[in-house]
């Protein structure tokens, strides 16, 4: 079993779903965005409260309470698992079976935030994120939730314009299909020589008339993406 940051879930229908888990850094950065937003609101409201007097401070304290405890709950339950900060970093909270998070688990994970905060600045929470397999803090562990990347990768098909699609000469397995497609898309910007070198590996499997191995592999990759 090779190391990977993926969460696999089998649906009751027997279909495998997978999602990429999110670790400490994007979560910390998203938290800082949310923290800044909340701090901004609190400072603004405090200034208003100064002019309003005691009643203003009463309202200020209630809003403070709501922002402290209920801000993440609201966004997790009603806005697709994403606070504003999580939206910026394209990550979201879901149940560990990849279904949307509900009120109960959301409340559990956000009340336990104060335990994760212990003893100072999320010491326990960070320790848990670094040591659990699915990057969960205490609140996530108790609520059965994980944080995943919310956007799956989108192909940039423009890289393919210059390629002629080539129908493969016999069936190609799923794993190899992905390799062919990645080769065609060349998302890593491999050099010409490197492309040729890799394509030559499978030379024995190519048709005898294939002239340049890389051109052939690229063409098949484009065909596999659906181009004809």
């Amino acid at each position: 079993m090779k190391l990977d940051t993926v969460a696999l879930v089998e649906t009751p229908e027997g279909t495998d779903l997978h999602a990429d888990l999110v670790g400490l850094l994007p979560r910390a950065l998203a938290y800082m965005v949310d923290f800044s937003i909340r701090a901004g609101i609190i400072v603004a409201l405090w200034i208003v409260a100064i002019f309003m007097g005691g009643t203003g401070f009463g309202i200020f304290l209630i809003v403070f309470f709501l922002l402290e405890w209920w801000y993440p709950v609201y966004f997790e339950v009603f806005r697709g698992g994403q606070t504003w900060g999580k939206r910026v970093y394209k990550i979201k909270v879901v149940s560990d079976d990849l279904t949307p998070i509900r009120l109960g688990p959301s409340l559990i994970r956000n009340l336990l935030r104060s335990a994760d905060f212990f003893p100072s600045f999320y010491g326990v929470g960070i320790l848990c994120l670094l040591t659990t397999r699915r990057f969960q803090r205490l609140g996530d562990l108790a609520a059965g939730t994980i944080v995943i990347y919310s956007e799956s990768e989108v192909y940039d098909a423009s890289a393919l314009d210059a390629i002629d699609a080539v129908a493969p000469h016999y069936p190609i397995g799923e794993d190899q299909q992905t390799a062919f497609i990645n080769f065609a898309l060349n998302r890593g910007n491999m050099s010409e020589e490197r492309q040729e070198e890799i394509a030559e590996i499978i030379r024995p499997r190519l048709p005898l008339n294939a002239d340049r191995a890389s051109a052939y592999v690229r063409g098949v990759g484009k065909w596999l993406l659906g181009a004809r």
Binding site: T55, G58, I62, F65, E68, L111, R113, A115
Partner: peptide, 25 residues
């Protein structure tokens, strides 16, 4: 004022309640 105290009790007391749950972990 009464409303100020209302806000204070919400912010303070409910926070204590939530914390005494969370720290049980």
């Amino acid at each position: 004022t009464d409303i100020y105290m209302f806000g204070h009790y919400i912010q303070n007391n409910i926070g204590i309640g939530f914390r005494s749950f969370a720290m049980g972990i």
